[in-house]
Simulated scan of single mutants.
Amino acid sequence: MIDPADLDHCREAIREGSYSFHAASKLLPERVRDPALALYAFCRLADDEVDFGVHKPAAVLDLRDRLDLAYAGTPRNAPADRAFAAIIEEFDMPRALPEALLEGLAWDGIERRYATLSDLRSYSARVASAVGAMMCVLMRVRDEHALARACDLGVAMQLTNIARDVGEDARARRLYLPTDWLKDAGMDEEQFFDDPRPTPEVRRMVKRLLAEANRLYMRSEPGVGRLPLTSRPGIFAARHCYDAIGRKLARRGYDSVSQRVCTTGRHKLGLLGLSLVRAAWVSITPESAVIYAKPLPEVAFLVDAAAHPDARQPVRGEQVLNVFRQLEARDRAEQMGSPIQATA
């Protein structure tokens, strides 16, 4: 069980760091909400350290060590780490799921860029769908169809985040738009960083991201009906809070460069009400055949890991180990003051 003091710390971290999830979590039953808050605190704090830390490679390498300690049953003496170790033990959390998140953050640490939409879905699978699969585990759901739809929702939410943050990322010299899209538009990445503008070409890219997100939001919905009844409103709330960001962006002409879209507290309150209604409706309507859609190829490994927790899986595959070798090299270079080039 999670120590109450550690849980209070996690709750405050989410209250300050993730308004959308904090709002949605109010509709989750306590037995799911408390471990979910602890899970999100660990994941969110790790993500922030990579996004906003001065030394990204060092932050990811530190997270690797923290994850190893948590799975060894000897977590670092910090509230989020102790709470996460308690979750691992209580829910038999498959290690492949947080390992996938770690790999996605490692890609951030080496400033990886993504050539295609499929590449971007692969990144989203790691930093978002892995969390969605872990949420299913917290609900004691191992049904592969429900897991596939939860992973759809994770990718959709991450694509919405990326669409919203195009300008903010560019000013920080980060790029998540598919580089093939920029080439097709005749745009140079470095020039975009130097002078980010909401040109028609950039707006079209934001629109394309949101179109894919909308497709996956729709695909995800039948999965909610396979979740425990009391958890459905909270998941619908998360879906609608993120989708509302994309809808607001669309109303503003897909300009996420000169402004950063957010939803108001009153709007979130209305979305919570909508989520309660939709949760009741899904309980009395026939199940859609979309529930049986195959997982996205980019998330299939997450579905398999969560659905079959007893299967033997490597702690870290060679692909992940190679990323960590790059991170260690970048970390040494940063310490020595050497210039570092972004990794394609």
Rank of each mutant, 00 (worst) to 15 (best):
D243P: 00
G53I: 05
P233Y: 08
V224W: 07
A38C: 14
V320F: 14
I291W: 04
V303Q: 15
G154T: 09
A130L: 03
R219S: 14
A86Q: 11
Q191G: 14
A342G: 05
A329E: 08
A125I: 01
N161Y: 04
S220M: 10
K248W: 06
L269D: 00
V315F: 10
G53W: 04
R316G: 06
D108H: 10
I245D: 11
I88W: 07
L210V: 05
V50H: 14
I162T: 12
F192Q: 03
G53Y: 04
I284P: 00
I14E: 12
L147S: 11
L271I: 06
Q313E: 04
A96F: 02
V127G: 03
R112C: 13
G17S: 10
A172N: 14
A238C: 12
A100K: 13
T116W: 05
K268I: 06
S283A: 15
S231G: 12
I2G: 02
A128G: 06
G246V: 12
R140V: 00
F84Q: 01
R247F: 00
A13V: 09
R95T: 02
C136V: 04
V282K: 02
R260P: 03
S256R: 08
T160I: 03
T74M: 08
R171W: 10
A305W: 00
G53F: 07
A250G: 07
D180M: 04
T263A: 09
M139L: 07
M205S: 01
P200E: 02
V277Q: 00
Y176L: 04
Y123E: 11
L120H: 09
V320D: 08
M93K: 10
E49M: 08
L321P: 01
V206F: 05
I235Y: 02
G253A: 12
R112V: 09
D243C: 10
L63C: 03
A13C: 09
Y19N: 12
L227K: 08
A100D: 11
Y40A: 14
L28I: 04
D48F: 05
G225W: 00
A293D: 15
A293Y: 02
N161L: 05
A279Q: 01
P35V: 11
K294W: 04
R44A: 13
C43S: 13
R66M: 01
R164G: 07
F193M: 13
A38S: 13
A128H: 03
A72D: 13
G253T: 13
D68S: 10
S220V: 12
E111D: 15
I110N: 04
H9K: 01
K207S: 11
L153N: 08
P309T: 15
G53Q: 09
L327M: 10
A306S: 07
